[in-house]
């Protein structure tokens, strides 16, 4: 199934704030003269975010490829855009990274001027001119206004809990009869059977560690819930619950990633909960934000995109 690009294109990018620098799609940036490919168009507006412009303010900055960023307003709603004629894609990861950083910077600047924006994923392009943008804003007005109102003064924060030292074997054995029995069996067995029992012992250890880690993350989530409007786990690690994804610097094992929607005023209380977590030996926590609420912004217009398939 392929889509026929029409007015609003969105090159899919991980919607999570933490994954915003990883485009999942890859397309060429085409600009052959006379080409009418899906990725070329006479006029387009690259969309960074939507903002509430009840107050008369403007945004002066440059966007991707130093394009001048401007605001298209429609009765209180502003679309932060730059003019473009093709989608953004490249095989050069450095270039993509540069674009993504600029995309985020513009969104951050818009947030500083207008308050919490409705951020759009990298490479969201509205095909057409300002009139098409205004028409789209008008059509989506209720949805946009409701969302802007709902997310006002709220920001997204990301938390990753990393276990730098596995929970000690002795501590686990002391609290688990099954492990204690296995230890006794191992000591009484011959070399061959001992090998198999040790394998079983290791499996049991991992199960207990996973359970402890999961309990800890659940406890953190519950405690954060008291200070945030929403708290959600972000995906699960490969290998199921037994093994967490290694953190980026391989300095430990990620045992839980959470995304939070909260007010800036709640940062201190959230930080306090996380301080309690890192007081535990062998645990580290990364806490990033405030971000524009990427994970909490609903999709706009996707349903009409589905319908446009048959157009």
């Amino acid at each position: 199934m392929t889509h026929e690009p029409t007015s609003l294109e969105n090159e899919q990018v991980g919607k999570e704030a933490g994954d915003r620098a990883r485009p999942s799609g890859a397309k060429r940036r085409t600009s052959q003269p006379g080409a009418t490919s899906k990725t070329d168009f006479d006029a387009g507006r690259y969309l960074y975010c939507l903002v509430d412009v009840e107050e008369d303010r403007d945004l002066e900055t440059v966007g991707i490829e130093s394009e001048p960023v401007r605001l298209i307003t429609n009765d209180g709603i502003g679309a932060v855009v730059h003019d473009c004629e093709s989608v953004y894609d490249s095989d050069d990861h450095t270039e993509i990274h540069r674009w993504l950083v600029r995309h985020q910077s513009v969104t951050d600047e818009a947030a500083a001027v207008f308050g919490t924006p409705l951020p759009f994923q990298f490479a969201t392009i509205i095909r057409g001119g300002d009139d098409v943008v205004c028409e789209w804003l008008e059509n989506e007005r209720d949805h946009i206004e409701d969302t802007l109102r709902s997310l006002a003064d709220h920001w997204e924060y990301r938390i990753e809990i990393v276990r730098t030292d596995p929970i000690g074997e002795e501590a686990l054995e002391a609290s688990d009869d099954h492990l204690t029995e296995l230890r006794a069996d191992i000591e009484a067995a011959g070399p061959g059977k001992r090998y198999l029992l040790e394998s079983k012992y290791e499996d049991r250890l991992e199960q207990l560690r996973a359970a402890r880690n999961q309990a800890l993350v659940t406890d953190v989530l519950t405690r954060l819930d008291a200070h945030a409007r929403e708290v959600h786990p972000v995906d699960s690690p490969p290998g199921g619950a037994l093994e967490g994804r290694r953190s980026r610097d391989n300095a430990g094992t990620s045992i839980g990633r959470l995304t939070i929607l909260a007010r800036a005023d709640d940062e201190e209380a959230i930080g306090s909960v996380l301080d309690d977590v890192v007081d535990n030996p062998g645990l580290e926590v990364t806490f990033t934000g405030p971000w524009a609420p990427y994970s909490f912004t609903p999709a706009f217009g996707e349903e009409t995109g589905e319908e446009s398939d048959g157009d």
């Binding site: 199934m1 889509h3 690009p5 890859a26 397309k27 789209w136 059509n139």
Partner: peptide, 27 residues
């Protein structure tokens, strides 16, 4: 893991191209 996650997603979504069309007419 990606494959398992893919099983949970809407089948049609996994077949989408790198971009999503929202609305409007092709120019």
């Amino acid at each position: 893991w990606d494959a398992l996650e893919g099983l949970d997603e809407d089948h049609s979504r996994s077949k989408k191209p790198g971009y999503t069309v929202f609305r409007g007419e092709h120019e």
